[in-house]
Nucleic acid binder design. Structure first.
Lengths: 155, 155
DNA sequence: CGACGTGTACTAGATACCTAATACAGTAAG
DNA sequence: CTTACTGTATTAGGTATCTAGTACACGTCG
């Protein structure tokens, strides 16, 4: 299109600074409408459920994890606070935060309730994009194994 | 620890005005982090995919659907606009809005992409609540049939 | 013609979330 | 004690969403 312009390429406005991009613990999806603090909360619960974080193990400090995920420390602090209130984490003031000795697994009631709620959301979107039940199930199986494999790789 | 207070029971503070509660078309979940206009957009797509809304059928007016769902007309208008831009709906100005004659179904690429994305979110929450793959799949099958049945009942 | 319903556009306010920066209290190591 | 790190609290600003109210252009019907 441009004729014989000999100007050196535009100096790259760098819309994306895109520095290290570590993803040590788990990933944060900025496009997900769910709040970041909820994604962090769920991520920690996921790692505990998968055994990547065992009872008594120490979790990264608020500032470290914030730097790792490239979010604000306040956001991580909010997730840690909720996990502490829920009995998932235990904080030794001035020392650090650890996985609770007896990591509470959600009661079967609320566990099924949360799962059912998520299933309805997933089924709804599956139907809205014209997917059948079999395709939806296949995709879940694939995604489940992928998430497990991804966490095992980092454990 | 009030002693022998004989005051009649509190007159039911009625924290939820809870008026008609119609739910003619589909339901809106205020606790869902997804924006309401996206829930509406997905709901219309869902009804078309299930045949509850056939090509050429008229959809409720912006104000009617807004009153039905108890949301602001602007929110419904935003959803209708996106559906019109996407070729799902067609608007006859001053007359009304109708389902497009050739309702576009998402390309297989973006359809699979959206489905895969939703599947990852669902699998993640399933793992985080300590659910196994089988339970997660069972819940999806149950939810899928429930959504279909619910829409058939209103069609 | 006028009245009504349609989609659309605009302003303004309220709320939730994320970010930034700073400060404080407690613990461990030098 | 001093230093460094921990979680926690506070204030401020920016962005996105939802709400409310109003106004306009278009088409149908009486």
């Amino acid at each position: 299109m441009g004729a014989s312009v000999s100007v050196s390429d535009s100096p790259l406005p760098l819309p994306t600074p895109d520095p290290p991009l570590p993803t040590h613990m788990f990933a944060i999806n900025p496009t997900d409408p769910a709040p970041i603090w909820r994604q962090i909360e769920e991520g920690v619960r996921r790692m505990i459920a998968l055994g990547a974080l065992q009872p008594g193990a120490s979790v990264p400090s608020v500032r470290d994890l914030a730097k790792d995920l490239r979010v604000n420390p306040n956001t991580v602090a909010r997730a840690y606070q909720r996990l502490t209130e829920g009995g998932v984490l235990a904080v030794k003031r001035g020392e650090g935060t650890y996985v609770a000795d007896v990591p509470v697994q959600p009661r079967k009631n609320e566990r099924n309730e949360a799962l059912r709620d998520a299933a309805i959301r997933y089924a709804s979107t599956a139907i809205s994009v014209g997917s059948g039940l079999e395709d939806a199930v296949d995709e879940v199986e694939s995604a489940y194994e992928r998430v497990v494999r991804e966490h095992r790789r980092k454990a």
